[in-house]
Nucleic acid binder design. Structure first.
Lengths: 224, 224
DNA sequence: GGGTTTTAAGCTTTGTTTCAGGTTCGCTGG
DNA sequence: CCAGCGAACCTGAAACAAAGCTTAAAACCC
């Protein structure tokens, strides 16, 4: 697997490269938009990690130009946390996914994996993490041959966890997103659902675990 | 930190105010756009949380007018769930970030933090000192390959020490910041935690030491 | 009536506090 | 200068408190 990193912040570029190398990717790094375009254009990469703010040519323009030249390599866009407009712009200009800085290594890997696998698949039909899939139409949890139906609440929680791969999601977040911000639901309710979910993850034989971080929240982890 | 909340839904306004107060912000609340503009215009706030739908003057107009009058206070816009147009409108009119209702307290805090934080501060959500890192999401203490989970109190203390690299932090400061200014906690409690922490620093094989300054406090030191 | 959601209760695990005995440090008076 | 003393500090064990887990049963909702 070959990945191109286009990032002018040397420290970050290095960090990202390191993460990828640790996961058996081959990595090339360049530091400005013009170089990024030139390298990516070769089509030799399985994915490109592309910062938005770059010297010489910004990320949007790089993707746009790539697409204009019929290079279909998947692009993962990096953007500053609070640059909301970037999301729209990024996806419009032809990026395949986007991620806000800061991010967890696990998230980077999850997204890259999904990018390099997804090629041509329909976006958003299923959510994936590790060895499990979530069928967003039928609300089924799938792992290999086995699958099991999830109730609506179970499903919502699973979806939120999977939308935050490798990140901690607080009980509060779950309550507010699943029940609404003015609901009277108790924490114990969430705990009950987490318990249900763990049982079902287990049932389908998944290695994915929901780990608890006391006083903080829950996080999905691939069991090695 | 001073924050102005402009929100006509009294219940929500209250909820938001409460969240912020719990996080050591000073909060003022007003309930319509005209007041919002008048208060924000003073420039006395570090951030403004601004609803879109407001009596007398809507949120967009408030921001636009603020910016026209050269008030640069960061504005976090609140908007109903899928009013997509709001997003564009909000950012166009000069808001710095926007968030859909409902939202989690944690999300509100994260966004506010990112708005009020100076540019160029830590990219990853970690604190670092010497050879150790502190994952601020998962409360893990990391050194090289090894990592260990910290309890909430341990974590808070570690964070404070690392926020004051090479400086002495008194027990009183620690008690006040970790347990609250009116707590009845004894010094020995802090000592116990310092002991726990030293053990964990040791466990991950860090060279960083917590040195004691008798009658004064504690300080982090990189072991040569 | 069957599946889903909520509630409640007892239980397990983990984090927190307290306590007691031991150690170190710095001061003081001989 | 140094022995001895007390205050400050360290740390392990135990008691305690809180957070989370699980399960069963009740309530809910087509």
């Amino acid at each position: 697997m070959y990945v191109l990193i286009v990032e002018d912040d040397l420290r970050l570029a290095d960090a990202v490269a390191q993460i990828l190398r640790n996961n058996d990717y081959q990595v090339d790094v360049v530091h400005d938009g013009a170089d990024g375009l030139a390298y990516a254009e070769t089509g030799n990469y399985d994915a490109v990690v592309l910062d938005v703010m770059l010297p010489k040519m910004n990320g949007f323009d790089v993707v746009a130009e790539l697409r204009r030249r019929k290079v279909a390599t998947p692009v993962l866009m990096l953007t500053a946390r609070d640059a909301l407009g970037d999301k729209v712009g990024g996806l419009d200009s032809g990026a395949d996914d986007y991620m806000t800085k800061p991010f967890a290594p696990a998230e980077l890997m999850a997204r890259l994996r999904s990018l390099t696998r997804r090629q041509g698949e329909v976006l958003f039909e299923t959510a994936e993490y590790g060895d499990v899939k979530l069928d967003l139409d039928s609300c089924d949890l799938i792992c290999g041959e086995k699958s099991i139906h999830l109730g609506y609440k179970e499903f919502s929680i699973a979806k939120i966890l999977m939308a935050n791969p490798g990140r901690v999601v607080s009980k509060e977040t779950l309550i507010e997103k699943v029940w609404g911000y003015d609901s009277e639901v108790e924490d114990n309710n969430v705990e009950a659902y987490i318990s249900f979910l763990r049982k079902k993850f287990d049932f389908v034989g998944s290695k994915v675990k929901i780990t608890t971080l006391r006083k903080v929240g829950y996080r999905l982890d691939e069991g090695e």
